[in-house]
Amino acid sequence: MSTSQNYIYLDNASTTKVDDEVIREIIPYLSELYGNSSSAHSLGVEINKKIVKARGNVAKLFNSEPKEITFTSGATEAINTTLKGIVTSNRTKRIQIITVKTEHSAVLDTCKYLEEIGFDVVYLPVLKSGLLDLNELKKVISEKTLLVSVMLVNNETGVIQPIKEITKIAHQFGALMMTDATQAVGKIPVDVKDLNIDYLVFSGHKFYAPKGIGGYYQNSQSLNFQPLLHGGGQEKGKRSGTLNVPGVIGLGKSCEITINETERNKSSVQELRDLLENELLTIEGAFVNGDRENRIYNISNICFPHIDADILIKMLDNICVSNGSACHSELIEPSHVLTAMGLSNKNAFSSIRFSLSKYNTESEILYTIKKVKEIISQLKTSNYA
């Protein structure tokens, strides 16, 4: 296919199209209003007012205070900032960090680094459903636990963890609680007060904002930590570096749109996801990976036993899907999420993630169903199956 207009994009857990309203909001700040928001001149002051408004929109989406939002380049930086900041600012004898085997690599790799500098990290297993067994958490948490980090929505299966209950357990032992809400924000309500969370990280490009902008929420009552980046003292000293003005303004606009669209998008996207999933499950042996009840409405991770997912993806040509996290797309290894859920390597390599957005149409889904069925039928009669 020669142009992006000919693609059917079902890889929205990797990234999303920037909303047209967001683009229109951003354009002036890439051209005539290109000043630095930290500058004291009139243009800088004018731009800073837009930054203040954008921060307010983000805070409104989370039901937080604007001062509790810090902008970063995205969720990976926010995760590194939060995890490393908490442990390096720790003045207690708490040396244990608890996380889950199905976390995003940004959390897992950072935790591996923290192990190297002396922290005890516990990687909790999950049930076949992908859900955390809270009894497993209760077995290992203690007064030595500094932090519990569990993602709200899994990026590969869409499984939603019971963060409110996990936070309650963490706080009972005096531990801090962080959640990676990257796949949740913009799709389902994320109320930091209701969750009673200490820290939350997110990324704008997962819900129709530009790439390169995200941030973290820090409960104003929680531990203040040293920043990952030192320099000009931007973001009240929490994240130095010239602010990504177009990104921040775009993120703020996306949050504003999301507040008004969430319920409508949920209904339409889930209807398409269910259509896709129900039809593909008529393929012999096919099954859904992860809990089908406790999951986000736009993701379906399906295993097609005895089919090589890489070959299927290539043969789908103009249909964009994934066989795992985009961050590890170049690695030839089974998904750590699926194997942690008990799948064999073979079945993990036979699994595909379909992730939808508000821009997908019924005709795209019907075409995808048709193509997947045709190709799998071909593969089963060839040497590739």
Rank of each mutant, 00 (worst) to 15 (best):
T3H: 13
Q5Y: 10
Y7G: 01
Y7A: 10
Y9M: 03
D19C: 00
D20V: 11
R24P: 02
I26L: 05
I26M: 14
L30M: 10
L30W: 00
L33Q: 08
S38G: 09
A40M: 01
L43Q: 10
G44N: 03
G44R: 06
E46Y: 13
E46T: 11
K50T: 04
I51R: 04
A54V: 04
N57F: 08
K60I: 02
N63D: 10
T70K: 02
E77D: 14
I86N: 04
T88C: 09
T88L: 12
S89V: 05
R91Y: 06
T92M: 07
Q96F: 01
I97W: 07
I98E: 02
E103G: 07
E103C: 07
S105P: 00
A106N: 05
A106T: 10
V107G: 00
L108K: 02
L108D: 03
K128D: 06
S129F: 00
L131N: 06
L132F: 05
D133H: 12
N135P: 06
E136Y: 11
L137G: 04
S142K: 11
T145M: 11
L147W: 00
M151N: 13
V153M: 05
E156Y: 08
G158L: 09
I160D: 00
P162I: 07
I163S: 02
K164I: 13
I166H: 02
H171M: 04
H171E: 02
G174F: 08
L176Y: 14
M177C: 13
M178D: 03
T179Y: 01
D180C: 09
A181T: 05
I197A: 03
Y199N: 02
Y199W: 12
V201S: 09
V201N: 12
S203A: 15
S203N: 14
K206E: 13
Y208D: 13
Y217E: 07
S220C: 13
L223G: 06
L223Q: 12
L228Q: 14
L229N: 12
G231Q: 12
G231L: 05
Q234V: 13
K236A: 15
G237F: 04
L243V: 14
L243A: 13
L243F: 05
N244T: 09
G247F: 09
L251E: 01
G252A: 11
K253P: 02
C255N: 10
C255F: 11
I257W: 03
T258W: 02
I259P: 00
N260D: 14
E261D: 14
T262S: 13
R264Q: 15
R264K: 15
R264F: 08
K266P: 00
K266F: 12
V269D: 01
L272G: 08
D274T: 08
L275R: 09
L280N: 07
F287K: 09
N289M: 08
N298K: 13
N298L: 11
I299W: 08
H306V: 11
I313F: 05
K314W: 02
L316P: 05
N318D: 15
I319C: 04
V321Q: 06
S322Q: 15
A326M: 12
E330P: 00
E333F: 09
T339Y: 07
A340S: 15
G342I: 01
S344G: 09
S344T: 14
F349I: 00
S350E: 04
S357I: 00
Y359M: 06
T361V: 02
V372S: 06
K373Y: 07
S377L: 10
L379K: 07
T381R: 11
S382H: 05
N383F: 11
